[in-house]
């Protein structure tokens, strides 16, 4: 259940802060793939939480 709370918090924070992702389109100085990197980190975090949950339930 703690994992679910973390997940809920993560998604809610992501929802609130997500407009920040939109900046940097075609701008000099910021890599165009930055939003995808952030997204990738989020997926990795979810995968880690999922494995932790699976271990917890085993």
């Amino acid at each position: 259940m703690y994992v679910y709370r973390v997940m809920l918090l993560l998604v809610f924070c992501g929802y609130l802060l997500s407009p920040l992702l939109m900046t940097g389109w075609g701008q000099q100085g910021s890599a165009w793939y930055r939003p995808f990197l952030i997204w990738g980190v989020l997926i990795a975090l979810t995968l880690w939480l999922e494995q932790k949950r699976a271990l917890d339930e085993r």
Binding site: M7, L8, V11, G14, Y15, M22, G26, P35, W39, R53
Partner: peptide, 19 residues
């Protein structure tokens, strides 16, 4: 611009909350 990501990120949110 990156506003197009709403389509994928919104759905990703649903699946992140799978449990």
């Amino acid at each position: 611009g990156y506003g197009y990501l709403a389509y994928s990120l919104g759905a990703a949110g649903s699946f992140l909350l799978a449990p």
